[in-house]
Design a protein around this nucleic acid. Sequence first.
DNA 1: CCGGTTTACTAAATCGGTTTAGTAAATGAA
DNA 2: TTCATTTACTAAACCGATTTAGTAAACCGG
Lengths: 336, 336
Amino acid sequence: MGKTTMADVAKKAGVSKSTVSQFLNERYEYMSPDTRIRIEAAIDELNYQPNYLARSLKQKRTSTVGIIVANIMHQFSTEVSRSVEDYFNKHNMHAIVCNADNDPEKEKKYIEMLRAKQVDGLIIFPTAQNADIYKNMIKEEYPVVFMDRKVPDLQAPTVVSQNIEATYSAIQHFIDNGHERIAIATEPLTISPRIERHEGYKKALHANGIKINPEFQISTSIDKIKKELDRLFQLDAPPTAILAGNDIVFIEVLEFAKEKKLEVGESFALVVFDNIPFAHFVHPPVTTIAQSAYMMGEKAADLLLKQINKEQIDRHEVSFPCELIIRDSSKRLKEK
Amino acid sequence: MGKTTMADVAKKAGVSKSTVSQFLNERYEYMSPDTRIRIEAAIDELNYQPNYLARSLKQKRTSTVGIIVANIMHQFSTEVSRSVEDYFNKHNMHAIVCNADNDPEKEKKYIEMLRAKQVDGLIIFPTAQNADIYKNMIKEEYPVVFMDRKVPDLQAPTVVSQNIEATYSAIQHFIDNGHERIAIATEPLTISPRIERHEGYKKALHANGIKINPEFQISTSIDKIKKELDRLFQLDAPPTAILAGNDIVFIEVLEFAKEKKLEVGESFALVVFDNIPFAHFVHPPVTTIAQSAYMMGEKAADLLLKQINKEQIDRHEVSFPCELIIRDSSKRLKEK
DNA sequence: CCGGTTTACTAAATCGGTTTAGTAAATGAA
DNA sequence: TTCATTTACTAAACCGATTTAGTAAACCGG
């Protein structure tokens, strides 16, 4: 015998399916107290659980949204996802998180899958490699919000960090502490945050009259970061300070330091873009640039829900400031 | 104008819905090559995407399973989830991860939500507080696999670690390194892994003829761990070694050490139950007990899929060994 | 006590697919 | 040439809800 359906409840309570449906949707005006009690009893007795699929099919809404993160290993993605989930739970909706693993193919697959499942909207950390798909969603007016990364040539609601300003202030902090040979290491410049972080870097050096040394700008894939760092430290004048472009690059820097027996904070100063949960346990405690992950998640969720509810919203970027949290790894330069 | 449906495609291709459905399900024997091409063209032209809700409603399967983790902050849960996802993706199915946040109410809500969404089965890290619900699912023969924690009095497929043996070997390692005053710290003894870890602890001490000191057994909520540790270290004979019962307790131990200016590995030896991603960056590198997360995920997924496919499976526990990874934090005892 | 309103319902259509049973035309064997 | 089989489809029922339009009975004011 299959699961109990609304029809079973209706029969048991001696009413029609319609009335049971009204009951479930709490439209009690449409029935007598007596009927209401009988339906309640029947539901109880049969241990009836409604089938959301059927409901969603008819209502054309699933009360579910999708989140596609580019890389679940980033602390930032996790924090944003959590925030989005909280927001939607408050609004009696659900959020499904998928990990595109930085792979445009996977991203595409997930977008298609989630849309086939009829989720009401998507928050995407875009790989930015699926321009046609993004464009199409916008054209169809399917509810989407982009997060963290701007998609070129696309007028779409996007929530980002103020990367240029944040990087600028980190570099300024280095300079204020006497550093001049400052390096930056990020993954390849394929997405806007990385490009902007390099931009902020150059701007700060320039504003302080420090000549930009292209050798000090690393932008390569994770597996090559250590090799590049090695190259830097072979120079006659190696960097005295490094900005690690995100938490994953940070790990590489740590491993590099360990292998080469360099002391973070002693051999070179370090600032990391991104919050590190272990920031004050690693030795020494590391200076970080914290993004407003929770607020950004809320904002994105809010923009998405407004679209779902057919409210008008601005179709461009909203940016959030970052906070430089100074710990021991970026102390004043000792020797010149 | 709404989304394109199968009916639109059928009309455009000049065939019936049935034939389009056959096409989508790749049952090409049922149509001429000519028809096939016309349907293909129509789908393309209309940019048609099938609606999974409708399909699932009729087929009574969603090709989706749910994973309910007790606490997403545990590295172990994340690894297992990832493994389960990989497994189901290989089988053309999807996995949805939900976080019960150690809250039985949330767990209940998620079980109900996922079942209402008609997921084909569930993998649960149970809070063990919803016995009636678990029992009911087993009785209904709804596909479920429990993970990490045994539910008392329930004959259900369950995948767990060999906690007693693993803890035993960690304590033996301490003893072999000259420690006798060994403490264990876990969260409250409400679920089987914690109980078993205390059990393995006692067994190892007993086997080595060391008297068990109940004061050295901490089992309290996270926010009280530090207070208890403080109590321990106020003793005339404080512990020289500590086993942290999981990665979250580990953080507390680290914070405690930091606050009290104690040196991990010097002031006391430390082993952590659970893999720590930063294990070799914290100072000193910390000895851990690694669970076979990936294999456990695969096994659970396999047991679940078999149930979904109505294959017969054993309705009891499968246990996996752990590995003691010795690093610097559990070095030989120096002073007596 | 008559016509209109309110109350308390129900029947049937609908959502967008899948699936079953059936059919007309073409092919093939005797 | 005729009957059986195969080929290439289609109509309609179905999955389990929601929702719209409709109705019978009770109520009610004049």
